[in-house]
Computed example of a mutant assay.
Amino acid sequence: MAEPDLADLDAFAAVARQRSFRGAAARRGVSPSSLSQAVRRLEDRLGVRLLNRTTRSVTPTEAGERLLARLTPTLEELGRALDEVNSFRDSPTGTLRLNMPTVAAKLVLPGLVGPFLRAHPGVTLEVVAEDSFVDVLAAGFDAGVRYEERLEQDMIAVPMGPDQRYVLAASPDYLARHGAPTHPRQVLDHACIRHRFLSGVSLPWEFEKDGEIIRVSPSGPLVGNVPELGIAAAVEGLGLLMTFDGFVAPCLADGRLVEVMAEWSTPFTGPRLYYPSRRQMPAPLRAFVDFLREQAKAW
């Protein structure tokens, strides 16, 4: 029997963990067919089926489960060994895989990508932006990005950007027709443009002033999960919009939108890069952490 190829073993482990060829391919930036061919080669060489495949699911066989259990620590140790060699380079090489909320990918990451990749040309940055809270390590990511209230306590967290703020805004036309609320509870009397996550959750609007926190759940003519759509609706005068200040900064600057009740808008800590303290850091991740800590001096 020919010795299995290490790349095929790694491909099998990725598919077995994700329970999906498409999911594993998306995480790795390759085609599902390439992973399917790798697993098929491995099964042919071992002479045993490792994955049960149907049109709806992929599950490891008993042999596949046993191989995955023995293979996982071996692949992790191999990764650590290669990374130790990588640490002797002037600039690390390799792939840094990050999972983060859409807002961080749109507002925070763009200002970091250029300087970081220019400083580390050997690093490839792979980013998946999603608003569901996945186990980033089990999904094959090196680190995740979350806001403070969503962080696990056994994680190391590094600031990824300055403080942010939610802004309540409306168009001058809307305010001329309906007036501006002066207290959070008055927001309930207005048409409001709301955000709803793909999970179906629509968070209440939270206001804070002098230590008092008030949450309201408004209603209105538009609910969606695309920030640009809500901003366009607010500019059209369809209602009040509450969103991250970075999303509406251009509209506030040119007067298409006007901030309302600014005194009830309290800054909160920006996103945090997080990773487990018990795990040796891959060289690309270590370089990114060092980069963020240097950037934080200017925030």
Rank of each mutant, 00 (worst) to 15 (best):
residue 61 T to F: 01
residue 101 P to Y: 13
residue 211 G to H: 06
residue 293 R to Y: 01
residue 74 T to P: 00
residue 156 I to S: 14
residue 250 P to M: 13
residue 169 A to G: 06
residue 215 R to P: 01
residue 252 L to Y: 04
residue 192 C to K: 09
residue 17 R to A: 15
residue 222 L to I: 10
residue 61 T to N: 06
residue 60 P to Y: 06
residue 126 E to V: 08
residue 147 Y to G: 03
residue 143 A to E: 00
residue 256 R to I: 03
residue 130 E to T: 09
residue 204 P to V: 10
residue 74 T to E: 09
residue 37 Q to R: 15
residue 26 A to S: 11
residue 73 P to T: 11
residue 148 E to A: 13
residue 115 P to R: 13
residue 94 G to M: 09
residue 205 W to V: 06
residue 109 L to R: 00
residue 236 E to T: 05
residue 225 N to W: 04
residue 131 D to Y: 04
residue 136 V to Y: 13
residue 263 E to I: 05
residue 237 G to I: 03
residue 232 A to N: 05
residue 128 V to A: 12
residue 57 S to V: 05
residue 70 R to C: 07
residue 45 R to N: 05
residue 88 F to Y: 15
residue 98 L to K: 01
residue 48 V to W: 11
residue 209 K to D: 03
residue 228 E to A: 14
residue 243 T to V: 15
residue 292 L to R: 02
residue 116 F to D: 09
residue 228 E to K: 12
residue 140 G to V: 07
residue 120 H to D: 03
residue 251 C to S: 15
residue 284 P to Y: 02
residue 206 E to S: 15
residue 248 V to G: 01
residue 268 F to N: 12
residue 71 L to I: 09
residue 40 R to D: 11
residue 223 V to Y: 03
residue 142 D to Y: 00
residue 55 T to C: 05
residue 33 S to C: 09
residue 290 D to R: 15
residue 75 L to D: 09
residue 58 V to P: 00
residue 172 P to R: 06
residue 1 M to S: 10
residue 149 E to F: 12
residue 31 S to V: 07
residue 169 A to H: 03
residue 256 R to A: 09
residue 25 A to V: 06
residue 16 A to R: 00
